Simulated assay, not measured.
Amino acid sequence: MPEKHLFEYAVIRVVPRVEREEFINTGVILYCPAQAFLKTTYEINEERLRAFGADLDRQELEDRLLAFKRICAGRTEGGTIGKLSLAERFRWLTATRSTIVQTSAVHPGLCQDAAKTLDHLFAQLVQQTAGRI
């Protein structure tokens, strides 16, 4: 039986009106230290944002979400935070914020393949809530 590894993940949420605390699941970030894996995937569902009456700057939102990918990738494209260790980057990305892009609480699990687990969680927690599964 293949070995299972501990992973942690959080859901990336767009909070169109922070004061109302309503959100739309937009992505997932997953960290698996045993596989040296830190990655995020997201999609912006324009229809759901309009349903919330969100009048957000689309480019600003895309830039904020792209920053998650850059920080996960590390190196110079992730800026100063991208130079930290995987664990430190994950903790920084999942820290509590009061902005239009936030993350859920961090949840643990076990996986054999972190990339497949990320895809599964994204389909289940983001795409399913968008009514596509």
Rank of each mutant, 00 (worst) to 15 (best):
residue 1 M to S: 14
residue 3 E to S: 13
residue 4 K to L: 09
residue 5 H to N: 00
residue 5 H to E: 00
residue 6 L to V: 12
residue 7 F to P: 05
residue 8 E to G: 07
residue 9 Y to R: 01
residue 10 A to P: 11
residue 10 A to N: 10
residue 12 I to C: 03
residue 13 R to S: 09
residue 14 V to F: 00
residue 17 R to N: 09
residue 17 R to K: 11
residue 19 E to T: 15
residue 21 E to M: 04
residue 21 E to K: 11
residue 21 E to T: 11
residue 24 I to M: 00
residue 24 I to Q: 00
residue 30 L to G: 13
residue 31 Y to M: 07
residue 32 C to Y: 01
residue 34 A to Y: 11
residue 35 Q to L: 01
residue 36 A to Q: 11
residue 37 F to Y: 04
residue 37 F to H: 02
residue 40 T to K: 07
residue 40 T to A: 03
residue 41 T to A: 09
residue 42 Y to D: 02
residue 42 Y to I: 01
residue 43 E to S: 12
residue 45 N to K: 07
residue 48 R to N: 01
residue 49 L to G: 14
residue 50 R to W: 07
residue 50 R to P: 04
residue 51 A to P: 05
residue 52 F to W: 11
residue 52 F to P: 05
residue 53 G to K: 07
residue 57 D to W: 06
residue 58 R to F: 01
residue 59 Q to V: 14
residue 61 L to N: 10
residue 61 L to P: 13
residue 62 E to W: 02
residue 63 D to W: 00
residue 63 D to C: 02
residue 64 R to Q: 12
residue 65 L to D: 02
residue 65 L to W: 00
residue 67 A to S: 08
residue 68 F to A: 10
residue 70 R to K: 15
residue 71 I to K: 02
residue 72 C to D: 06
residue 73 A to I: 06
residue 74 G to V: 08
residue 77 E to D: 12
residue 79 G to I: 08
residue 81 I to T: 11
residue 82 G to A: 03
residue 84 L to T: 08
residue 84 L to F: 00
residue 85 S to Q: 03
residue 86 L to K: 13
residue 86 L to D: 11
residue 88 E to V: 05
residue 88 E to R: 06
residue 93 L to F: 05
residue 96 T to K: 11
residue 97 R to M: 04
residue 98 S to H: 15
residue 100 I to A: 04
residue 101 V to C: 02
residue 103 T to Y: 12
residue 104 S to C: 08
residue 105 A to F: 06
residue 105 A to W: 10
residue 106 V to D: 05
residue 107 H to C: 07
residue 108 P to W: 07
residue 111 C to R: 03
residue 115 A to I: 09
residue 116 K to A: 08
residue 117 T to K: 03
residue 117 T to S: 02
residue 118 L to M: 15
residue 123 A to K: 15
residue 123 A to M: 14
residue 123 A to L: 14
residue 123 A to P: 10
residue 124 Q to R: 09
residue 124 Q to I: 11
residue 125 L to G: 07
residue 130 A to P: 05
residue 131 G to T: 12
residue 133 I to K: 05
